[in-house]
Amino acid sequence: MAYLIKKPARTLSEQVYAVEAAKGLGITFRRLFTNVFGKAEDKKIATIQYPDESRDYPERFRGVHRLTHRVDGSPRCVACLCCSTACPAQCIHIEPAEYGEGDPRHGYERFPRLFVIDELRCIFCGFCVEACPCDAIRMDTGTHVPASWSREHFIFDKETLMSIPGRDGTYVTDNPRHEPGDPTHPGIDRDHHH
C-alpha cells in the first residue's frame, strides 16, 4: 500500500536557501576560528597524529598472543591442543613432548616442543584464550601484530610468543598454579614398589 509522506513545512528563509546557507557558513566559520585560534579548552579536535601519538587500546582488546611463563620461566602451556582445536582459522600448530626423565614434571605434564601461530591466518577471535585450560595463551598484550616485510615474520614460534609481555609488562599471570614440590602439590609422595 502506497502512502503519502508529508513533506516537512519550510519557512520562507529556509525556502530561499541563501539565508540558511549563510547561517551554515556562520557555524562552520565559527568552528574554524575556534579550532584554529580559540583557547585550548574550547577546541574540539577529535583526532590525533597517529604514529607520533597513539591511543591505548581498550582494556579487553584482543592483541597479539603471548605464551605465559611459570615462575621458573618455562611455558605454562601443556600442549593439550585445545586452542588449536578451538581455532576456527586453524592457525595454531603444536607438537607436544614429554618432560625428560629426572625432570620434576616428568609424568605429570607435557610441554609444547613446537608452538607456532600464523599471525596472518589468525582472525583474533580469542577462542584459543577461551579454550586454554591452563591460562597459558593470552591476548592481553595491548598491542597488535607489528607490521613487517615478509610473510615468514608473521609465523610466531614459541620463543617469540614467550618474549611478548602482557599489558602489565610481566610474563606471568595472576592465576596461581600448583607445581610439583608445592606444599599443595606433593607430587609422587609414595614409593611404588613392583
Partner: peptide
C-alpha cells in the same frame, strides 16, 4: 586544513 578544522580534525599534516 581548513576543512579538517571545520570538522574537528587535525587534518593531513604528517
Amino acid at each position: 586544513r581548513q576543512s579538517a578544522m571545520v570538522q574537528d580534525r587535525i587534518g593531513p599534516m604528517m
